[in-house]
Amino acid sequence: MNMKPHQIGQIDEFELQNTSKDDGHSTIQSFKEQELFHLNAIPKKIVAITIMLTILGITFLIIGVLLLFKQPSNYDQYLPLLFIGILMTIPGIYYSYKIIQFAYSRSRQEQEQIIQELPIDY
């Protein structure tokens, strides 16, 4: 591309000229963005499991913390409940975040990358 300077008042502007060998004709398809996936591209089973993991994990954490504060002398009985709650909450929140990120992504490439990160078997 060649740049020709133009002066308008005190500001220099540049005009871009196409010096490539093609005619300058470009198809509309090359500029048209690909359509985004709909949210139903993610299987309902993945969404249901993600919601279940998040809700049950938070419920186990709340029950474990309440029982721990109610009877602190028997803390070793409630540690497994807290541990399971943490193990369920971490992937539940992570995949919920990925699904929300998929819904709000602006390009198809971002959506394809998010789909590849989800545990989907086709």
Rank of each mutant, 00 (worst) to 15 (best):
M1L: 09
N2V: 11
M3I: 12
M3W: 15
P5H: 02
H6Y: 06
Q7L: 14
I8E: 09
I8L: 11
G9H: 15
G9L: 03
G9K: 15
Q10S: 12
Q10A: 09
D12H: 15
D12L: 11
E13H: 15
F14L: 15
F14Q: 11
E15Q: 11
L16G: 06
L16R: 14
Q17K: 13
N18S: 13
N18Y: 15
T19C: 12
S20E: 12
K21P: 14
D22M: 07
D23A: 13
D23V: 07
G24Q: 11
G24P: 08
G24E: 07
S26Q: 11
S26I: 08
S26A: 12
I28E: 06
I28Y: 02
Q29I: 09
S30C: 08
E33P: 00
Q34M: 00
Q34F: 13
Q34Y: 13
E35S: 03
E35W: 09
E35V: 03
L36P: 02
N40V: 05
I42A: 01
I42H: 14
K45M: 04
K45R: 12
K45W: 15
I46D: 07
I46V: 12
V47S: 00
V47W: 01
T50W: 11
I51G: 00
T54L: 00
L56K: 11
L56P: 03
I58G: 09
I58Y: 00
T59K: 08
F60E: 05
F60H: 07
L61I: 08
I62W: 01
G64T: 02
V65T: 10
V65F: 05
V65K: 08
L66N: 02
L68S: 01
F69Y: 02
F69A: 04
F69K: 03
K70V: 04
Q71H: 11
P72Y: 10
D76L: 04
Q77M: 08
Q77R: 08
L79P: 01
L79S: 06
P80Y: 00
L82T: 05
L82K: 05
L82M: 01
F83W: 08
F83D: 03
G85Q: 06
G85T: 05
G85P: 02
I86G: 06
I86V: 11
I86Y: 03
I86N: 06
I86P: 08
M88P: 07
M88G: 10
M88Y: 15
I90V: 13
I90T: 11
I90R: 10
I90C: 06
P91S: 06
G92N: 04
G92A: 03
Y94R: 13
Y95P: 01
K98C: 04
K98Y: 10
I99P: 01
I100Y: 15
I100T: 12
A103F: 15
S105R: 09
R106M: 08
S107I: 07
S107M: 05
S107Y: 08
Q109T: 13
Q109W: 11
Q109S: 10
E110G: 14
Q111G: 10
E112R: 12
E112K: 15
E112D: 05
I114D: 05
I114P: 14
I114W: 15
I114Q: 09
I115F: 05
I115Y: 06
I115G: 03
I115T: 06
Q116G: 06
E117S: 15
E117D: 05
E117V: 10
E117Y: 09
L118W: 00
P119N: 02
P119H: 09
I120W: 09
D121L: 14
